[in-house]
Design a protein around this nucleic acid. Structure first.
Length: 410
DNA sequence: ATAAATGATTGCTT
DNA sequence: AAGCAATCATTTAT
């Protein structure tokens, strides 16, 4: 896999590769003496030094001549050596590249997020993810959202891989290009293999920094995606009709004490296929919104009260064992409570019922019927009298019509 | 396009 | 911890 381009072997470089040409002119060494050799070298150096002063054609010809000179390899090696020493002493220490911790962090995150991991089959991955979510997640509502999330994630991953590949390709192309250039130049100036290696590593570093930027922005995109999809507040879904009905039923049939116990919450959650905390949220919202503006909920309250009353009636008619005698009694006392304590019926009814949930079925049943009957009674006694219902809930006498007269002393 | 409804969050209180 | 009140951000209705 690693395509370490080591095109610069000591032997493969430049002119050393043309041994045939080097010993072509035997006539130069005619009077082979020490003097003539020195003069020969001096001549060559002179030519090299002045090669830039000449016209292009002239230089080209001279270059060729020099390249073919028998002393060329030796000279080249010497020059390379000198250069090696100077260059390496300058920036040799910098060669070590420490593993960037940030890059590792990004890599880890991308891997954890499934972006940079092994690519599952392209477009089918979203479908597969959806199926997996549908199988794994019990909530059938969640799976839709989840698959949407996965689809977006797949999109990001595809973009990421495309870009990454593009960068890699560009990097390779550029590296090849630079290497060709250097190889070309190595015909006229001393370029050592190490130098090329260094250049390549510099290029790779640059490109990897670009890749890191890509990774970073991908991470950001994933984070944004997460916050958009996993923060339920942003993309919330209304509960389905059945769930809200169940919740409302419970709420209005426990209007005097609309605080479901932990078990009741769990049961409601199961029935509505939502979480317990969602049930808590719902009741919190419902309580406060009901209290804030009871007039608006009157119709709803009556409706659910009536419905629950019918249900209770039919239920008690069917299984009238020990339950039925107690029902009218408690209803009566509840009404009297309403009169005596002008408000705060939560506590009173709760105390009447025994404050706890000793026997969930019977207790809940009685409680429910008490509330329902009271509603029906209040409705029958004076339908126009919304205040009766108002005082049912509000301990501190809220004016439904007046709106915001909030006294915030502190 | 705008208002109302609604589920969730946050900060505070008890 | 649980609930309240205010608020946010979205969905639904007008």
């Amino acid at each position: 896999m690693e395509e370490q381009p080591r095109l610069m072997h000591p032997h493969g470089v430049g002119l050393a590769g043309h041994p045939g040409l080097t010993h072509r002119p035997p006539d130069v060494t005619a009077g082979s003496d020490g003097d003539s050799r020195k003069q020969d070298i001096g001549d060559i150096l002179q030519q090299i030094m002045t090669i830039t002063d000449q016209s292009l054609d002239e230089a080209q010809a001279r270059k060729h001549a020099l390249n073919c000179h028998r002393m060329k390899p030796a000279l080249f090696n010497v020059l390379c050596e000198i250069k090696e020493k100077t260059v390496l002493s300058i920036r040799g220490a910098q060669d070590e590249e420490p593993p960037d911790p940030q890059l590792m962090r990004l890599d880890n995150m991308l891997l954890a997020e499934g972006v940079s991991g092994p690519e599952k089959g392209g477009g089918a991955s979203a479908v597969a993810a959806a199926a997996a979510a549908a199988v794994g997640g019990t909530g059938n509502d969640n799976s839709v959202e989840h698959s949407d999330y996965r689809a977006k994630l797949t999109q990001i991953r595809q973009i990421y891989h495309t870009e990454l590949e593009k960068y890699e390709q560009a990097c390779n192309e550029f590296t090849t290009h630079v290497m060709n250039l250097l190889r070309e130049q190595s015909r006229t100036r001393p370029i050592s293999p190490k130098e090329i290696e260094r250049m390549v590593s510099i290029i790779h570093r640059k490109f990897s920094s670009i890749q890191m930027q890509l990774k970073q922005s991908t991470c950001e995109a994933v984070m944004i995606l997460r916050s958009r999809f996993l923060d339920a507040r942003r993309k919330r879904r209304n509960f389905n009709k059945q769930a809200t009905e169940i919740l409302n039923e419970y709420f209005y049939s426990h209007l005097s004490n609309p605080y479901p116990s932990e078990e009741a919450k769990e049961e409601l959650a199961k029935k509505c296929s939502i979480t317990v905390s969602q049930v808590s949220n719902w009741f919190g919202n419902k309580r406060i919104r009901y209290k804030k503006n009871i007039g608006k909920f009157q119709e709803e309250a009556n409706m659910y009260a009536a419905r629950t009353a019918v249900n209770a009636a039919s239920a008690s008619a069917q299984g009238s064992q020990a339950n039925s005698p107690s029902t009218p009694n408690s209803a009566g006392s509840a009404a009297s409570f309403n009169m005596s304590h002008s408000g705060d019926l939560f506590m009173s009814v709760q105390s009447l019922n025994g404050d706890s949930y000793p026997a969930p079925q019977v207790g809940a049943n009685i409680q429910s019927q008490v509330d329902t009957l009271r509603h029906v009674i209040s409705q029958a006694g004076g339908y126009t009298d919304a205040l009766a219902a108002t005082q049912l809930y509000s301990p501190q006498g809220i004016n439904p019509g007046q709106g915001q007269s909030r006294t915030n002393s502190e």
